[in-house]
C-alpha cells in the first residue's frame, strides 16, 4: 500500500544544458505532478526519482524521462517527481515547464 518509488538514471548522447540552481514546478493535483530539479554531479547523467501511487508503469516512466533528457540535452541534474496519476503527455509538459523556469 505504500507509495511506489522509482529510481533510475538517464544519459543523453551530448549533455549540454545544465540546471544551475534548484527549480520547482507544479502542483500534485489529481492527474498532475510536481518536479524538483537540482544540480547534481552524476558524470553527465540525470538521476531520476519518481514517487507515485501508481504501480506497473516503470518502463513507461523510464521511456518518458529518457526522451525528455535526450531532447533537452540534460546532464548532471537530479529530477524528483511527486506524481498523482499524470499521463505521459502531462509528465513531459511539466518537465519542459520546469526547465523553462530554470532558464528564466
Amino acid at each position: 500500500m505504500a507509495l511506489n518509488t522509482l529510481e533510475f538514471e538517464c544519459k543523453c548522447a551530448a549533455p549540454a544544458a545544465a540546471v544551475t540552481a534548484p527549480v520547482h514546478f507544479g502542483v500534485v493535483g489529481s492527474g498532475d505532478l510536481e518536479v524538483l530539479m537540482t544540480p547534481a554531479k552524476a558524470g553527465g547523467a540525470v538521476k531520476v526519482k519518481v514517487v507515485t501511487p501508481v504501480t506497473g508503469f516503470d518502463a513507461l516512466w523510464q521511456r518518458v524521462l529518457a526522451a525528455f533528457v535526450e531532447s533537452a540535452k540534460l546532464g548532471d541534474v537530479a529530477i524528483e517527481i511527486n506524481d498523482n496519476n499524470a499521463t505521459p503527455a502531462v509528465v513531459t509538459l511539466r518537465l519542459r515547464q520546469a526547465l523553462a523556469e530554470a532558464a528564466a
Binding site: A2, H24, E34, N82, N84, N85
Partner: peptide, 21 residues
C-alpha cells in the same frame, strides 16, 4: 519548509497516497 526541504506527509505515504514536497 519549501519543496527543497521535502517535508512530505509520512501519513499519506503510509496510505499510498500521492505526496507533495
Amino acid at each position: 519548509a519549501g519543496p527543497l526541504d521535502r517535508r512530505t506527509s509520512p501519513h499519506l505515504e503510509t496510505l499510498g497516497e500521492a505526496v507533495e514536497f
